[in-house]
Write a protein that binds this DNA or RNA. Structure first.
Lengths: 149, 149
DNA sequence: TGATAATAGTTAACATTAGCAATCATTTTA
DNA sequence: TAAAATGATTGCTAATGTTAACTATTATCA
């Protein structure tokens, strides 16, 4: 094959990454708004809290946004009953965020919904292609998903 | 290997796709704001115009956003001298958008900058991994990047 | 110890950007 | 030709982001 120079891989990246992410994001946007009454931004905050990113500062760092923006978004989610704030007794400045039972079941429903949709879309991928997603995913994560952005 | 079920591939997708995209987006955000004085949203509009998506309606459809939002963003870019509006003589309702010389050179500089940054990041990927990016990219594009989002 | 700095989070004021509804001009359809 | 549809823009309102200032708590260090 011998087509796989880094430059060509970068071209390929720009060919598939934005449209694929856009499609997935659009699906979540639609589902989240239509069936679960949350925005994509809220979804991504809930997703991170579910993944253990449990403070305003960590969320702000992880999303590359300001603390005030997160603080307000958290306000809304608390009022919606999806997450709770708990003061950390070990450091009373720190407010730990966690999903409520309702928040958890919402996320599980939304994830399961999205997984089913993705599984349909990926149904006719070959074994080799699925394997390539593993290899490429690990490679890209190693190359890009590290601390120094 | 035999690990490559669709379900496992979906897990992998969620493991690498958001953080990788976030890192790339953060780099562009930083470069675009710091050195070129445009926002990420503006960058993505310029990128699409550069790719031949040349009207407000097409941009709105491609970005899954409203025409008014695009129209106003275009206003800003026109005032910045990066794009021009040209009424299409064949259909005078249609306003065709194109990059000015300045817009073109800005995009070329930003792309080249980003390519260099990506090439550094991807420098130590193996030949097999680069090849996997091709296969996985085509597969994901086929699965997700089609008209019915 | 006690003053000072640093950290976590929130609030305030302001700017940007998004959305929907309505409008204008132009083209297509019946 | 009259009515419907399309492309683009503008007015108004809501959501979201940013910086600066403020409160409370913890860490530093002279």
């Amino acid at each position: 094959m011998m087509q796989s120079s880094p430059q060509a891989a970068i071209d390929k990246f720009w060919e598939f990454f934005p449209p694929v992410w856009h499609t997935v994001r659009a699906h979540i946007h639609h589902e989240a708004a239509e069936n679960f009454d949350i925005t994509v931004g809220q979804f991504h905050i809930l997703r991170r809290i579910r993944g253990g990113i449990d403070s305003v500062s960590k969320l702000a760092a992880d999303r590359d946004t300001s603390r005030p923006a997160i603080s307000r978004a958290v306000d809304v989610l608390v009022n919606q009953g999806l997450i709770v704030r708990t003061v950390n007794p070990a450091d009373r400045r720190n407010v730990q965020l966690s999903l409520t039972a309702e928040g958890q079941s919402l996320m599980e429903a939304l994830f399961s919904n999205t997984r089913n949709w993705m599984a349909e879309k990926m149904a006719d991928l070959s074994e080799a292609e699925l394997e390539a997603i593993f290899v490429a995913g690990d490679a890209l994560k190693r190359a890009f998903a590290n601390k120094n952005g």
